[in-house]
Amino acid sequence: MKKRGVGIASVMFGFGYGEGFPDHSTASIRIKPDGRVEVKTAAADVGQGVLTVVSQIAAEILGVPVESIDLVNGDTAVTRSSGSTSATRQTFFTGNAVMNTAQILRSIIFDLAVKVYGKTYPELYFENSCVVPHGAEEKKISFAELAKIAAERGEKLEAEGSYFPITTPPDPSNGQGERVYVSYTFVTTIAEVEIDLGTGQVEVIRMVAAPDVGQAIHPQNVEGQMEGGSAQGIGMALMEEILFDEYGTLLNPNLSTYLIPTSLDVPRMQTVIVEDEEPLGPFGAKGIGEPAMISTAPAIINAIYNACGVRIKELPATPEKILRELKKLAAGN
């Protein structure tokens, strides 16, 4: 017999190193002689999309098409530290560093343009890699021309900036602190499972996850993070377990013995992006890396309980464990 159940779980996740550890990111941006924009950061993009996000941020602030951004990445000879790609921190930290740097560069460009035109700031705006005077659009100057003018004057259209917020260590006695993390990401996951009472096999048949990311700078990538994280969460809930023997020898070092979800183990998922702007985030954004997977397993475990009344307290919820608990339940504990 098969039974179905639904479970829900939420996570509140403080991102960045937090707890008083120094945590910062530095970026630099320049206008190249051809007018393209070079963004240098050491943020490692392992597929999560931070370089897409920082390109969008720089393009937005500098009024250039995102295609005209050239990235220089992770080279100790030319980039400063952006900190690690961990702790769900890159969108927030390097995003903020790039935002701050782009703003500095924007003011440097404006400063030069004001001198060139003999006009004040409000009379100028940026559009499509040009500085444009209001009401005299035909007199616009491209970033390439401006870079040339700057070079002739011995100046550079270049800026460096960083983001370095302060956090405080928590009181060890109660875990409380003034500002233990800069900000928090919230995710709620709802899972529906079908459990075979004869075999103890659990199938996740539906999953909806709602991440509060502040502002989704690249919604498709937020979905990608959620879908990937949720798939890992399914693995964590139902199959992934590192087994050692008594001598500490790893018993399941292969992908045929340490199972991770395949395309057949993961249902079609729905991501409902919640945008509640974080005032400290770049354009209101928060990180989504790790919290994407944290509420998945508890939602599934709750769904199992809802389906058949057994409470699995040790992951993963393998068929053996579920059958054992079902037996206990039938025997009146």
């Binding site: 597929g47 990608g224 990937g228 949720s230 992908l255 991770i260 395309s263 057949l264 079609r268």
Partner: peptide
Amino acid sequence: SEEEIRKGISGNLCRCTGYQKIV
């Protein structure tokens, strides 16, 4: 169909995407 696609890529593990966008 979605099912055929999922079967067809079930021998290809992906740790990042959760497969949905691949499907």
